[in-house]
């Protein structure tokens, strides 16, 4: 067969669920505090895109899109930042309720790659060539509304009925699922003043508790309650962002691993007070 006929001008994409790739998955989680967004990219290993990232031939990035204000910019992750990205948006550029985030992985180089089994693609691709140019989109994490879907899982409020130094956590539906943290007045007053390290330890505990609650809600007679996850896409998104897949994350939570998972996930932030 003529080699030219084997060139794929459109690179197969890694998405949230495997499609062209056998197992590869790519997703991003977000955390927003006013106009600062922390993006965490998650790409599974053993696939062509991961290999290109490792070789410095591809990079993570995120587009910020605000159609109403004619704004669309792409922000690549700097190599030294690994899979984490902090985006500082200029308030004057966007309309908050109209802003969309679009995480992707792009090629940084021109290349012609002959697909082999180690690239993790379906057998159909083996022996074919993928034409990659600077900017070719290799993985697509989807589109996310900035204020509707990002960073709204946790909120705090002052609960004057609580004794000094204590707090409580509730899973609430109002209407979307989130976790509400009631803080005793002294804790609430000092919350913003405690050091970032101490606050992180506190929030790690909160997240561990929340995961245990979520774990109980997601399991029905030891099986994943798909109906609950359908009804609460935020819960699905959070669990998906914490490990290889939801089943594995729920298994770990069930076996007492919530604190361990929470301690690895260090980007929890509060939304404004209720």
């Amino acid at each position: 067969m003529n080699a030219a006929r084997n060139i794929l001008h459109q690179a197969p994409l890694v998405r949230k669920k495997p499609e062209s790739y056998l197992k590869a998955c790519y997703a991003a989680s977000f955390d927003r505090e006013r106009f600062v967004i922390r993006v965490r990219h998650r790409l599974s290993e053993s696939n062509l895109v991961h290999q290109l990232v490792k070789a410095g031939k591809a990079q993570y990035g995120c587009e910020i899109i605000s159609p109403r204000t004619f704004y669309r910019e792409f922000f690549p992750v700097q190599p030294e930042d690994g899979v984490q990205q902090v985006l500082k948006i200029d308030e004057a550029d966007i309309a908050l309720d109209d802003t969309i985030l679009h995480p992707i992985i792009v090629s940084t180089d021109e290349d012609n790659i002959e697909v082999c089994k180690g690239h993790g693609l379906h057998e159909f691709f083996t022996g074919k060539f993928i034409e990659v140019l600077p900017g070719t989109i290799l993985a697509d994490g989807g589109y996310f509304g900035l204020i509707h879907e990002v960073g709204k899982m946790f909120s705090k409020y002052e609960d004057s009925s609580l004794p000094e130094g204590t707090y409580k956590l509730e899973q609430v539906h109002d209407p979307a699922l989130h976790f509400s943290i009631g803080l005793a007045p002294d804790l609430h007053a000092n919350f913003e003043n405690i050091s970032p390290e101490k606050r992180q330890i506190f929030l790690t505990g909160i997240l561990a508790n929340a995961l245990e609650m979520l774990g109980r809600s997601c399991l029905k007679e030891d099986e994943i309650d798909e109906e609950f996850l359908e009804k609460h896409p935020r819960a699905r998104k959070l669990l998906e962002s914490l490990g290889e897949n939801i089943e594995a994350v729920l298994d770990e939570i069930k076996n007492g691993g919530a604190a361990k998972i929470a301690s690895h996930y260090r980007t929890i932030k509060m939304t404004p007070q209720k």
Partner: peptide, 8 residues
């Protein structure tokens, strides 16, 4: 749709 042209 296939390429992030802002890198070009």
């Amino acid at each position: 749709s296939m390429r992030q042209l802002s890198m070009v």
